[in-house]
Design a protein around this nucleic acid. Structure first.
Lengths: 203, 203
DNA sequence: CGTGGCCTTGACCATCTGGTCAAAAACAAT
DNA sequence: ATTGTTTTTGACCAGATGGTCAAGGCCACG
């Protein structure tokens, strides 16, 4: 029943397996589109067994989402107010793009949730996320006022970084359909975004 | 049964009502998350009545999607190869942003579909969409080669416009959560994106 | 070994959901 | 009004789905 924090190693392992399978399925079909049977098949466990480790389908989803939120904000947390402004921001863009490359499923899980109005994340957005963004926006505003980068709205600058980088994970099918069997979209994007933000930010 | 093309005015009206309700519900919950009961309630019609006008739930979805595709590409179609390059591209950005403002539901419907791998649109993306994008990309490449705009990859330029403008419709909840009860996000974005693309494109 | 607790699952259940159908209501044309 | 057609819906169905449960399997530890 309880098993708040996984104790035995078999528990840790199975919870891990289940979350991995759930991520795969949720990110591909959305919460509603995913079924316990799909997740069970993907995890190689029986359906009642899933529910031995998680109280409900929703619990799996929530667990994924809150684990994700942390990882997701890391690149922004790493933005160093004491560094060289343009270099810092370009590095942030690269880190974010790297996440789209390495964790596209996580990105899509997030996207699915937000697009549908973030029914299970409203709170986290308005507190955790907003707090961090406001903090970093203040840093960026400082740089702008000191004339070290161009004078742009810090919040929209951050939005633009999110939009541009996550686009390559979330809209991957579209990007590939349009580019055709060309080279790796994200590698191309890396160069394009470098140019874009260099030009935008130059004081 | 048949009713290929709505004939009577009552048919036209009811199909319209149903599609409007379906758009509302699909865009908010995704295809799988939407139920015929929700759509029926939203439309103020009985469930069997919906199925009198559309053969299935999927038919409603497909109808919406294909109607949408057209509207969605209009702004890009309007990009005039004979116009002044920077002005044309900035106008495109503004038209696209305008669509995010006026048709956020359509944008989210689209986003939902693409994020989940576009199971019902693959074809359209690889043909209709790709064709138009390639055509306009060629125009933009021409401008770049003639030195009339900066030398950027046309495809990724178009992606960046999509990403930045649709972000304000698709991720509206997040944008508002972060900005707090501030002014209209899209109006702010209009100015920000103007600056961004002006700087990016200057030869 | 034996035994107590952890882990696993086949069978089952209630509910939801897309879709059917036959009959009633509304309407149109004579 | 009468009759034939279109529209509408209450009742119903089969399959899917989240979740339960009791019984059996497995493992660690004495």
């Amino acid at each position: 029943m309880g098993l708040q924090k996984p104790r035995t190693r078999i528990q840790r392992k199975n919870r891990e397996t289940i979350l991995e399978a759930a991520l795969e399925v949720f990110s591909q079909h959305g919460f509603r589109g995913a079924t316990l049977d799909m997740i069970a098949a993907e995890a190689g466990l029986s359906k009642p067994n899933l529910l031995y480790y998680f109280p409900s389908k929703e619990a799996m989803h929530v667990t994924l989402l809150s684990k994700l939120m942390d990882t997701w904000l890391d690149p922004l947390r790493a933005l160093d107010g004491d560094g060289e402004p343009v270099a810092e921001l370009l590095a942030y863009v690269r880190r974010k793009l790297q996440m789209s490359r390495e964790f596209p499923r996580e990105s899509r899980l997030f996207a699915n949730e937000i697009v549908q109005g973030a029914p299970r994340m409203q709170a986290a957005l308005a507190t955790e996320l907003k707090a961090l963004v406001d903090e970093k926006a203040a840093v960026i505003r400082g740089w702008a006022e000191a004339g070290r980068i161009a004078d742009v709205d810090p919040h929209h600058l951050i939005f633009s970084i999110w939009a541009l980088t996550q686009h390559y994970a979330d809209f991957d099918v579209q990007v590939r359909a349009v580019l055709g069997p060309r080279r790796d979209p994200i590698t191309e994007a890396e160069h394009f975004l470098d140019t874009l933000f260099t030009r935008l930010l130059a004081p």
